[in-house]
C-alpha cells in the first residue's frame, strides 16, 4: 500500500510545525480525517478545534495571521472551496494574510461519502482568487517538502489540495522543488502529460505502458497550479507536439484550463486533451471504482494519450 498523503501531511505538520512557535493549527471537527489530530496531540496549546464551523475557522485564522501567527486550517477540500471561500477571498487573499488553507479528501478520495464530500472544484475556486498560491502534492516526498516550505519559507495566502490516499512515490527522498517550477518526472518526445496530485504517479504508470506501445511520453508534475509554470507548458508543446492534462478535478478551472490559457495566449496549436471529471456531479463508490469510471486512472490517462497522439 502506498503511503497516504494525509498521513504524511499530519506527520510533517508535527515535524515542522511543532518546533515553530508561530504555527497554529485549526480544524473543524474533522481532525481524525485530515490528520491535523497528530499536531493536536503533539501540541495541544497551539491546536484549535472550532467545531463544525468552517467559516468561523477561516476568519479566526485570518485574525491569527493578523496577529503575526501562521495558521494552517484544515477541513475537506469541498468545504474550503465553499463555506470557507468568503473569508479566503475577502479577508485572507485580499489582505495578503499568511494563512495556509489545507483542503483534505480532495478529488474523489471522499469515495463512499459521495458527491457532497468530493472535492472536484477546489482548484477552480482558489485559482480564481488573486494573491492565492495554489498547490497540490503528488507523492509523500513532495507532501513533506510542501509542508516544510509553507512553514519555513513561504509567506502569504496558500491553498493546498491534499489527497486522502496515495498512489506511490516518484521522487527520491530529499528531492528539492521550487514553488512555481514544474518538475519533469519523465522525459519523452511524442506527447506530454501535465498532471498534479495522484494523477502524477498514475500517469507515470500510463507512460510506462505507452512506452511498450512505442509512444514516448514526457510527464510534468505541475504541483503549483497557480502561478503556473508557463515555460514548462510552452516547451512541452514545442518539443513534444501534444499535450494531455490529467487531474482528479473538474476539467473546468483546473490545470487543464490553466494550460489551455497558456497555449492559446502563446498561439501554440497542438493536439490537446483534458483528462478529469467531465463537468458532472460524481457519486458514491470505492475510491478505486470512482477513479476508474471517471477516467482519471492510469488506463484513462493512457487512452487519452493514444487519442491525442493519433491527432498529431
Amino acid at each position: 500500500m502506498a503511503a497516504a498523503l494525509r498521513d504524511v501531511y499530519g506527520e510533517s505538520l508535527v515535524k515542522y510545525g511543532v518546533p515553530d512557535e508561530k504555527v497554529v493549527v485549526l480544524d473543524a471537527d474533522l481532525a481524525t480525517s485530515t490528520k491535523s489530530v497528530l499536531f493536536g496531540n503533539a501540541c495541544p496549546e497551539r491546536f484549535f478545534d472550532v467545531g463544525i464551523a468552517e467559516a468561523d475557522m477561516v476568519s479566526m485564522a485570518a485574525g491569527f495571521a493578523a496577529s503575526g501567527f501562521t495558521p494552517f486550517i484544515n477541513t475537506f477540500a469541498t468545504f474550503v472551496a465553499s463555506i470557507c471561500a468568503v473569508s479566503a477571498k475577502s479577508l485572507i487573499a485580499y489582505s495578503g494574510l499568511n494563512v495556509k488553507l489545507m483542503g483534505g479528501n480532495n478529488g474523489l478520495t471522499g469515495g463512499y461519502d459521495g458527491s457532497t464530500h468530493h472535492g472536484i472544484d477546489d482548484i477552480n475556486v482558489m485559482r480564481g482568487i488573486p494573491n492565492m498560491l495554489v498547490m497540490s502534492p503528488s507523492t509523500p516526498v513532495m507532501m513533506d517538502w510542501m509542508v516544510k516550505t509553507l512553514v519555513q519559507d513561504h509567506k502569504g495566502p496558500a491553498y493546498v489540495s491534499v489527497s486522502r490516499q496515495g498512489a506511490g512515490e516518484v521522487y527520491e527522498e530529499g528531492t528539492s522543488f521550487t514553488i512555481g517550477q514544474a518538475k519533469t518526472v519523465r522525459e519523452g518526445t511524442d506527447a506530454t502529460i501535465i498532471a498534479y496530485g495522484l494523477c502524477v504517479p498514475r500517469a507515470l504508470q500510463a507512460a510506462e505502458k505507452l512506452a511498450q506501445e512505442g509512444i514516448n511520453v514526457r510527464l510534468v508534475d505541475m504541483f503549483t497550479i497557480k502561478p503556473i509554470d508557463r515555460a514548462a507548458v510552452i516547451s512541452a508543446a514545442k518539443e513534444t507536439g501534444a499535450i494531455i492534462t490529467a487531474e482528479e478535478h473538474s476539467v473546468i478551472g483546473g490545470v487543464g484550463t490553466a494550460v489551455a490559457e497558456v497555449l492559446t495566449e502563446e498561439g501554440i496549436a497542438v493536439p490537446f486533451k483534458r483528462v478529469g471529471i467531465q463537468d458532472t456531479f460524481t457519486q458514491s463508490g470505492s475510491y478505486a471504482q470512482l477513479v476508474e469510471i471517471y477516467g482519471v486512472g492510469a488506463d484513462g490517462i493512457a487512452q487519452a494519450v493514444r487519442e491525442t497522439v493519433a491527432r498529431k
Partner: peptide, 28 residues
Amino acid sequence: YRGLNTKLQGHPDMKKCPGVDFTTGSLG
C-alpha cells in the same frame, strides 16, 4: 447503499431516492 449507480448515495439525494424531500450532506 453506497454502491455504484445507486439511489442510496452516501448522503440523501432527492433526485435519486424516492421519498427524500431534500438533499443533504453539508451540515447546517
